[in-house]
Amino acid sequence: MIQGQNFPQVTVILRGYNYESVRSVVSAMVGTKLRSVEITMNSKDAIETIKKIANEFKDEILVGAGTVLTYDQAMECIQAGVQFILSPVVLSKDILDLCKEHQVISVPGAFSPSEIWKSFVDGADIVKVFPAARLDKKYFQDIQAPLGKLPLMIVGGINGDNVQEYFDAGVSYAGIGSGIFNKQDIVNCDERALKKSIEEFETKVKWG
């Protein structure tokens, strides 16, 4: 099992794309520093896409499900072969326990210090702070002053121009959707352009 502390530094978030587009992005990611992809549940045929991508790429890229809100969705994603689950909201302890039972990394969402702390007490591996760009980077320093170093992921409004500021402030992980690729390149399955975007993004991050 990949423990939370060994989770890839940056996760690519793909929301609303079909299987062909998702596959083109994941294929372009192979061999790069982008080693984790989140396929959101509010995408068309999300479960089928997750199954196919996990079957083909799970040995090279961590494949996860995003926008997971319920226990039934979490179970469906686990059965589809995900290696991690993310949510924009606090997840129940039942869902976190389900993830542990199946050796799936759990990344519930939170915004306040109380939500963040409770998620860790309930067994979360990583906590996703969302929407992160609404918060000054100092927020993350302030949270960890009393609570200690925490495995936090920033999501929402994060891109190559601001992500390093948050890493410098003590954030461990980032989830980035539109902040890496040109949307049309994804829609067109333009793998050459996608690879170029990855190369450009990689130069903006101090990789741990």
Rank of each mutant, 00 (worst) to 15 (best):
M1I: 02
I2D: 00
G4D: 03
F7S: 12
P8V: 13
P8D: 14
T11L: 09
T11G: 04
L14H: 11
R15D: 02
R15N: 11
V22T: 12
V22Y: 08
V22P: 00
S24H: 09
V25G: 14
V26G: 14
A28H: 09
M29A: 08
V30S: 06
V30H: 07
G31C: 08
K33C: 10
R35T: 12
R35I: 05
S36I: 13
K51F: 11
I53Y: 09
N55E: 15
E56H: 08
F57R: 10
K58D: 12
I61C: 13
G64V: 10
G66N: 04
T67P: 10
L69Q: 12
D72V: 14
E76F: 09
I78E: 08
Q79V: 07
Q79R: 13
G81C: 01
G81S: 03
V82E: 07
F84P: 08
L86T: 10
S87F: 06
L91M: 09
D94W: 05
L96W: 01
L98M: 08
K100W: 05
K100A: 11
S106G: 03
V107P: 00
G109I: 01
G109D: 01
G109C: 00
E115Y: 04
S119D: 06
S119Q: 10
G123D: 01
V127H: 08
K128V: 04
F130S: 01
F140D: 01
Q141E: 03
L147V: 09
P151C: 03
P151R: 05
P151S: 04
P151T: 05
L152V: 15
G157Y: 00
Q164F: 15
E165I: 06
E165G: 06
A169F: 12
A169Q: 15
Y173M: 06
G175S: 09
F181Y: 15
N182D: 12
Q184L: 08
D185I: 07
I186H: 06
C189R: 14
K195C: 14
K195I: 01
S197L: 05
S197M: 14
E199R: 13
E199H: 13
E199G: 15
E200I: 12
E202P: 02
W207I: 08
